[in-house]
Design a protein around this nucleic acid. Structure first.
Lengths: 254, 254
DNA sequence: AAACATTTGTTCGTATTACGAACAAATATA
DNA sequence: TATATTTGTTCGTAATACGAACAAATGTTT
């Protein structure tokens, strides 16, 4: 989206960049670290950090700034405005119990798949990603499932993906991906086999919203040492499709 | 936290207020609605909305602005910097399966209990709250559990709570609450019986972090028509305590 | 379809807000 | 203790965000 420069509030962007500078690797930072990571002057970074602290989003122990749970309020707005999470959760719990694997739902935002719901099993070794996690859409089964069912989105994004080789299996050109998406559309599920990460396989099925639109997909991730590709398909596909049909039947009425 | 007025970035606060204007009830809003809710001029509200849209946090269908999943990025920083979610989840899944009830973990932020992890069962009728949800700490079993184990926090907050009568069972004065918290500390669990909401009971147990500090509590909510108070205690308390011990044993090493 | 009402988009002069350089104070390190 | 580094403060001012006023677009009523 294009806007006039005079309609852009620079301070807001800078402030958000300060918030985004914090991460799993950088849980607590000094003023100087934040200033460096955000490319702001120390004085500017300090003002933003103090503003966040004043508003309750950050705390300071005298040296390091860190986030407080109030930050959840900023993301909660999105979560609370989504119906799919409540609709899908019971069916995901059932599925997860039935196949004894974790499962997640995601959607495409920009060029990434974003995880928005997750249901986990109590197995010690399990593969799953937190809500809010992002991965390149074209390298994930969910991303491919959604792209395969959205001609417009597919055409829009095919030229924008970064076709970088992550493993020896990674699809690294547009044409191969296009063929794969066409295949996925026909077969009704997507399977990614060690393309994003060695040792990781994923299968996905589509969730239909109103007007047969596919915005979300359901996935199960599994380490390669647990099941073969065919075993995954045999064990997971039908229950996943059942869950998706149930979720879809409610979503389509919204 | 006190800061100098000259250290406060007003545009950031205004921008965050615009973001927070969106909610479950107000999923999509016009420019005028946002301006009214935030008490900004139309021109100012418009600039913030356009900035968010430009940055990808909001979208506009020509008339209404609404949040995009990119907003999750703003809260994800907090989630990704918390170890407890990953540590606790497997034990919560096991617990949930064992007692056949949903369970959650929360912490106190300001005067509220904030839900940060949730594990749900596939029962049609289930009581649970989304991650990020907030409730008055003093009226929830988790809040009371944490207050009971934190003398300093208790003393700090006792005078700040809003002792409003929500049901006929609600504790409405500081002294009664103080007595209840002392009792909870001794018995090692908290039970709230229709004080927050008629028809709702909750039980909580403490999770210990490093230095025996109790920052988090585990809870199970249940409608009153399913179990009596004694049945809840008999069925849930011991498995919950087991889960907490397991989670605590990992947390205490961090 | 026309008239009227309401909302959104645009412009631009300027008040005010956020800026950062420079220095002081505090803290960390050798 | 001396030195290095980081944080806190000040303040003149550049520039940024402001909103009033008007134009354009959209919505509502007759």
């Amino acid at each position: 989206m294009e806007i006039k420069e005079s309609d852009f509030v620079q301070s807001l962007e800078k402030g958000l960049n300060v918030l985004l500078a914090f991460s799993n690797e950088k849980k607590a930072m000094t003023l100087s670290e934040v200033a460096e990571r955000t490319d702001l002057s120390r004085a500017a970074a300090r003002r933003f950090l103090l503003t966040y602290s004043y508003l309750g989003y950050m705390q300071n122990d005298g040296k390091h700034f860190s986030l407080t749970p109030k930050v959840l309020d900023l993301g909660y707005n999105y979560i609370s405005s989504m119906d799919i999470i409540e609709i899908a959760k019971p069916f995901m719990v059932k599925l997860s119990k039935e196949v004894e694997e974790s499962c997640s739902i995601g959607l495409i935002e920009n060029k990434d798949i974003v995880y928005i719901v997750q249901e986990q099993v109590s197995r010690v070794m399990t593969v799953s990603l937190k809500v809010g996690s992002r991965l390149p859409a074209h390298l994930t089964s969910m991303g491919r499932m959604i792209l395969a069912m959205n001609e417009g989105l597919k055409n829009e994004l095919l030229d924008k993906f970064d076709y970088k080789q992550l493993t020896e299996n990674t699809i690294v050109d547009k044409n191969s991906l296009c063929l794969e998406l066409n295949k996925i559309k026909k077969q009704g599920y997507a399977f990614v086999d060690q393309e994003l990460e060695v040792g990781l396989r994923a299968i996905s099925t589509p969730i239909f919203s109103k007007n047969e639109k596919v915005i979300y997909a359901l996935t199960i991730l599994s380490p390669t040492n647990r099941f073969t590709k065919n075993e995954m398909i045999k064990r997971f596909l039908e229950p996943m499709q059942q869950a998706c049909i149930q979720i879809s039947s409610i979503l389509e009425k919204q």
